[in-house]
């Protein structure tokens, strides 16, 4: 009972105060949004310690049990400890331990970030290029009427954004400008796509307001594990 009532009360009070603060710029409401954001950051920082602890425990357990993927866990824990130590001791920091930020240029931390972390992240990001191609290949198969329309529209957009689109229809007279592929691509993006996007955005905005109200007035308690 208490486990649900207290979180519900905190949610209701904080939610209501934040809604009021949105419409009342007068003190003491003017700084409440920033204050609550700071409180959230403090809670998230404490939770981060929980997260780090969980990471060590989870992967430590896998390593000690020699789980089937324990090698990955060893890399994870090794990387975590290495970066933590480098960050805490500021090894290689040009201004020493008491000097500038932990991320100062020239420090080992900066080195790890630039030459290990960033390339790894960029590699993951680069996978998108291949995944976009494979997803497009499936999405553009003309299996039914809708997929055929999608294929045609995608084809026009694709051509319209490259020099080929301009080249293909450049011979058309100015009176038939509306048939030129770049023009069609532009109109599809700025009229049809924009309209659809806005419709989704309006639905999302109303959905956010409605969900927030449900949570604030306690109708939706499922985030607490209750209906």
């Amino acid at each position: 009972m208490v486990r649900q009532t207290i979180p519900l009360m905190i949610t209701a009070i904080v939610g209501f105060v934040l809604v009021v603060a949105y419409f009342i710029p007068h003190p003491p409401f003017d700084t409440l949004r920033e204050d609550f954001a700071i409180y959230f950051d403090i809670i998230a920082s404490v939770a981060f310690i929980l997260g780090a602890g969980n990471l060590i425990m989870m992967h430590g357990s896998k390593i000690s049990k020699r789980d089937k993927s324990w090698g990955y866990s060893a890399v994870t824990v090794g990387g975590f400890i290495l970066v933590l130590l480098i960050g805490l001791t500021k090894i290689g920091n040009p201004d020493g331990f008491r000097g500038s930020s932990v991320t100062a240029e020239g420090s080992y931390f900066d080195y790890v970030y630039r030459y290990i972390f960033r390339p790894c992240a960029a590699t993951m990001f680069a996978l998108l290029a291949f995944y976009v191609a494979s997803a497009s290949f499936r999405a553009f198969r003309a299996k039914n009427a809708e997929a055929t329309i999608l294929l045609l529209v995608a084809f026009i957009i694709l051509l319209g954004r490259t020099f080929v689109g301009t080249l293909l229809t450049s011979w058309l007279p100015d009176s038939l400008f509306f048939l030129k592929i770049p023009y069609l691509a532009e109109k599809i993006m700025t009229v049809l796509n924009f309209a659809g996007n806005r419709a989704i955005m309006i639905g999302i905005a109303l959905g956010i307001i409605s969900t927030s109200l449900k949570v604030i007035i306690g109708i939706d308690r499922s985030y607490l594990g209750a209906d």
Binding site: A44, A47, G51, A52
Partner: peptide
């Protein structure tokens, strides 16, 4: 990807 989400998700699933 967030520690706070982990604790909330644990509580939610435990109750479920």
């Amino acid at each position: 990807s967030r520690a706070l989400v982990m604790t909330t998700a644990r509580e939610t699933v435990r109750e479920a």
